[in-house]
Design a protein around this nucleic acid. Structure first.
Lengths: 339, 339
DNA sequence: ATTTGGCACTCACCCTGCCCGAGTGCCAGC
DNA sequence: GCTGGCACTCGGGCAGGGTGAGTGCCAAAT
């Protein structure tokens, strides 16, 4: 167990390093923080901290920098979440109010988060399966060609064109539309499969049954994990703020960000409730091994319908970033609840 | 007027510089290209080319690099469009076939273009005003709350929630929906304003008239330039391929790419038909002054419904890039026509 | 047992001077 | 008008020395 003072030293190291981006030495530490002990004592503490793996020195005769383990301890035990300033809160409101549709909400959120944290922002669209059905629309584009439009309570609209095995009459179509809606509107998407299972059998014409099956198949297919997850990224220009070695780091990070699959997995691994901070190598993906990801779920009601977060250098202002991420997530939740 | 050989020298300089990314000298030129003259002669030609502003030297005692003006001449008169190889063509087909909806088409196109050109790809969604109306849907979310859904022949779906001044009956709604559709389906969006102008008056109830006016106002509003233009960007990781000074250049470029307004203006300035190449400072935007933009319109029929292109360093393989951009645009046009 | 001051040591960093070579401009000759 | 020769320029790479921040260790003080 580390003594109280040693933890204090670690906190000071993290804070200074985050601020200056340079290895911090014993002398500078005692000058900038009132630790009440001499540099020599701090040196001893540092030796212990290094022994335990919380800090490291880039090379002999340099100051120390925190390791991933050091940041982890800092986040877990030494730092809280810094609440936003009033101007910042006001900025959130100003920025997010007045969004006209879901794309707009997500777009504004990404820009806002990137600006507040000066890092890369990632916002996931509300998940289909966790949303509620607001309406299902079926349109005949051609006799044997339908368009299925799904609308959720979070404002998300998903569409898919369906080629039918046989022409489908206007009355049958209206019939199917009505039955579909009466069964699923107001229900959660996750429950849809059971609710519509027996629909085909209730149609008399054999051909209609086939068509109904096809329509349902497409409907269910668009609920499949693969297609349902979308996200938006912004603030990549902030990657240039990464540190002096950013030219080396930026490439793999940009590549990882372009692979939406990677990001989705990343967000998926985060806790369902509460804020998640993944530091450096805790991120499974290779290219993100020198970044930290701060993410949190957001939702219109009590339950999270999706996640948002930021990606930044491990050397980031954790309390401030966590504060911004949490505040934005809360307000986005409100916005969605209102629409 | 430059002699034939001087043009040949310029072409050789551009090709070598694009390949090696290093200033090219007279000796290396004569070795790599069969110009049939000695280095000394080439030096004289280079002096003239520099005089005329087509090439420049980074510093004394270095080779020459093309200027924007030099690239311009190269593109206009010295190089053609390189057709794609058969494997590349096949890759386009494989990649784009099997897209399930418009988002998917655009997403795949961006990735494909980025991969093919190894540069940043930009694809604009089909413009609303230039598309044709396929269907207009009106849903009652609540008594005084409607959702308007627009569907175009290019597969684009746009939705907007409308708060009505007064409740709107189900029959009135069906009535309005039918009338709207009968008037506008199959027509170009650009013509919609005139086609629906007199709709409110045809309703008897005064309250209904007000509601219809509101609905129409929203409908028209969503056709306004500001909202209608969307685009998707990909391949930003390729920015790291920019050159040895990429750390300096990447920041402003990333910032410009995040400002969709900037990009839309950029694409907007391109020619309506045919390929447009904007080189270096020809791009109005500051941050893009060391990039070139190759763009072309694409569309399902004869007319372009939107544009796509790539952003890369001025030092790019113009013939190859132009070939890829053109080929992708053509095939995307086909895909859209089929859906 | 912990803290402290002192001290020798270690490197990264910076500055300097140096050489090398690619590339140039110019000129005289073909 | 082309060519070969020649002197010149200047960026880049390499070696060497000085500087200073920072360390580890030890013996003395608390």
């Amino acid at each position: 167990m580390l003594s109280e003072r040693r933890l204090e030293v670690l906190r000071a190291i993290v804070q200074d390093y985050v601020g200056t981006e340079e290895p911090v030495g014993s002398k500078a530490l005692t000058e900038r923080h009132k630790l009440g002990v001499s540099p020599a004592t701090v040196r001893n503490d540092m030796a212990v901290l290094e022994e335990e793996g919380y800090i490291a020195q880039p090379h002999t005769s340099a100051g120390r920098i925190p390791t991933d383990k050091g940041y982890r301890l800092f986040v877990d035990r030494l730092a809280g979440v810094k609440p936003l300033s009033t101007p910042e809160r006001r900025a959130i409101h100003n920025f997010l109010d007045g969004a006209v549709d879901l794309d707009d909400v997500v777009g504004r959120t990404v820009r806002l988060l990137a600006q507040l944290t000066r890092q890369v922002a990632v916002v996931q669209y509300p998940s289909l399966t966790r949303s509620t059905v607001r309406h299902v629309e079926l349109l005949a584009l051609a006799p044997a060609r339908l368009m299925l439009v799904l609308i959720t309570d979070t404002g998300r609209v998903e569409q898919r064109v369906i080629d039918c095995p046989a022409p489908f009459g206007e009355t049958s179509l209206a019939d199917l539309r009505a039955r579909l809606n009466s069964r699923v509107v107001g229900r959660r998407f996750a429950d849809v499969p059971q609710l519509v299972q027996d629909l085909p059998e209730s149609f008399e014409e054999l051909e209609d049954r086939a068509t109904v099956s096809t329509v349902l198949a497409t409907l269910l297919e668009s609920l499949v994990e693969e297609h349902e997850e979308r996200l938006m990224i912004g603030g990549t220009a902030n990657l240039t703020r990464f540190g002096h070695d950013f030219p080396l780091m930026i490439r793999p990070v940009l590549e990882a960000l372009e692979e939406q699959v990677v990001l989705l997995k990343l967000l998926g691994e985060a806790k369902e409730s509460g804020m998640t901070v993944r530091i450096g190598h805790e991120n499974a993906h290779e290219g993100l091994s020198s970044t930290s990801v701060v993410s949190v779920g957001y939702g219109s009601g009590g339950e999270a319908v999706a996640k948002l977060g930021v990606v930044g250098p491990t050397r980031m202002d954790y309390p401030g970033t966590m504060g911004a991420v949490r505040a934005v997530a809360r307000y986005v939740g409100q916005i969605l609840a209102e629409s």
